[in-house]
């Protein structure tokens, strides 16, 4: 590098504020030093290398970064990593069945072509997992409202809505 562009040594600004965070992600314990301003999504993606959760807007509207914190959906772009100390996080990587096969909801999304580029998919899956858990027999309108905080530019939502309804009926049929 030529001299004007290189780092001028000898300056000592404020040291970053580092904290330790311990949490469980998809059932696995993690503990790491993290700068206090780090968002949860950056922590998941770049520190833990769980890159399945996506960032679409970083301002809390698109929903691509949605994860579950202790079973409740939350925007990981608007949450700091230090806020989830001791929490149980679920991301898209933790949604398949224990044997690695697709969950009922994941399978339904594929059958109903509920994903194209797949970028909104992590947020759709986490949002709908929570929703179907709490609303086992939803109406179409309820499904639409449930995912109205998740933007998808590809699918026009129809395949996602149908997949959620299909998954709900299959889950109900599985229940004793």
């Amino acid at each position: 590098m030529n001299s004007p562009a290189v780092h001028a040594a000898g300056v000592t600004p404020n040291a970053p504020d580092m904290r330790r965070v311990s949490l469980r992600v998809n059932g696995k314990p993690y503990s790491a030093e993290v700068e206090s301003r780090t968002t949860l999504v950056d922590f998941l993606r770049h520190s833990l290398l769980l890159t399945g959760t996506h960032v679409g807007c970083e301002h809390g509207v698109c929903g691509a970064c949605t994860i579950l914190i202790d079973g409740r959906s939350a925007r990981s772009c608007l949450t700091l990593a230090v806020q989830v100390e001791g929490c149980d996080i679920t991301t898209i990587e933790g949604l398949a069945n224990a044997d690695g096969s697709l969950s009922i909801l994941q399978q339904a999304l594929s059958e109903k072509h509920g994903l194209q580029c797949g970028f909104c998919t992590p947020g759709m899956l986490t949002t709908l997992s929570e929703f179907l858990r709490d609303h086992p027999a939803p109406s179409e309108q309820q499904v639409r409202e449930a995912i109205s905080g998740n933007l998808c530019r590809c699918t026009g939502y129809q395949g996602i809505v149908e997949a959620a309804l299909l998954a709900a009926s299959r889950i109900a049929a599985d229940r004793p």
């Binding site: 993606r45 770049h46 290398l49 769980l50 890159t51 399945g52 959760t53 996506h54 960032v55 991301t91 898209i92 990587e93 949604l95 398949a96 697709l102 994941q106 999304l109 594929s110 059958e111 072509h113 994903l115 797949g118 970028f119 998919t121 992590p122 899956l125």
Partner: peptide
């Protein structure tokens, strides 16, 4: 036909540019 692409994308195993380190 159901897509070849889906399995990876549904399980968080896609490879988008920002996933590369």
């Amino acid at each position: 036909i159901q897509r070849l692409e889906d399995h990876a994308l549904l399980t968080g195993q896609g490879h988008f540019v920002d996933d590369l380190h």
